[in-house]
Structures are given as C-alpha cells and as structure tokens.
C-alpha cells in the first residue's frame, strides 16, 4: 500500500528533476518552469506530512460532523501556492523586461555584471 515514504520519494524525484532543469536550461523561461516543479515538490511533501501522523501511520480522517481535521500542513501548502504565484508574476515581468532590453532570454547573454 501507499505509505508516507512513497509520497516523499515522489516529492524528492520531482525536486531533483526540477534542480536538473534549473541547472541545465539556457532559457530563463525554462528555469522558471523548472522552479515551479520544485515548488510543487515541496507542496506534495507538506500535504503528505499532513496526511500521516508523526509516527508514520495514516491519519484517519474523521467522519463528517465529528471533530475537525488537523490541516496545518495544508495551510503551509496554500502559502507555498501563494508565494509561487507571486514569484511567477514578478519573474515573468522581469523576463519581459530583460527580453525588451537585451532581445534575448538566454542566460549566457545576461553578462552585464561580469567583466
């Protein structure tokens, strides 16, 4: 059956693939897209930790109308979605500004601070 480990391994794989994209992409947009993958890996981890008790047992969801479920992990995932959205907006605005000034979105052309 599916245990906490499976979710964590899925998140780790997503995170590693995202880092690979960030390291190898030449296109700024590709890097931003890979960053979104890494955000999502963190969100999967938060939601997974929320669904299991600290000793790794599955958290039994209460019946409707009984005690409210503990959802602190999901709140953190919500905040990650929010930060990722803000990051995407500012990052894409920067990409547009860079494209307008340099007529290129390839990272090796962004060497203004290098001498």
């Amino acid at each position: 059956m599916v245990t906490l480990n499976h979710y964590l391994l899925l998140g780790a794989a997503m995170f590693a693939i995202g880092i690979y994209g960030v390291l190898t992409r030449r296109n700024i947009l590709g890097i931003l897209i890979s960053l979104e993958l890494m955000f999502n890996a963190a969100m999967v981890n938060f939601a997974a930790f929320n669904a299991f008790t600290p000793d790794g047992k599955p958290r039994v969801m209460p019946f409707q109308g009984q005690a409210l479920p503990e959802l602190h992990g999901q709140v953190f995932a919500l905040f990650i979605i929010l930060v990722a959205a803000a990051e995407a907006v500012v990052g894409l605005a920067l990409v547009l500004a860079i494209y307008r000034n340099l007529k290129s979105i390839y990272v090796e052309h962004l060497n203004l601070l290098k001498w």
């Binding site: 059956m1 245990t3 906490l4 480990n5 964590l8 669904a51 790794g56 047992k57 599955p58 969801m61």
Partner: peptide, 16 residues
C-alpha cells in the same frame, strides 16, 4: 528515517 516506524503501518492504506 521512516523504515522502523513504517514497518507496522506498511500494509495499511493511508485511508480507508
């Protein structure tokens, strides 16, 4: 980290 604590819960689905 989780191998020891998960051994008991490995056969149980996380949700019925």
């Amino acid at each position: 980290e989780n191998a020891a604590s998960l051994r008991g819960a490995a056969d149980r689905g996380f949700r019925q």
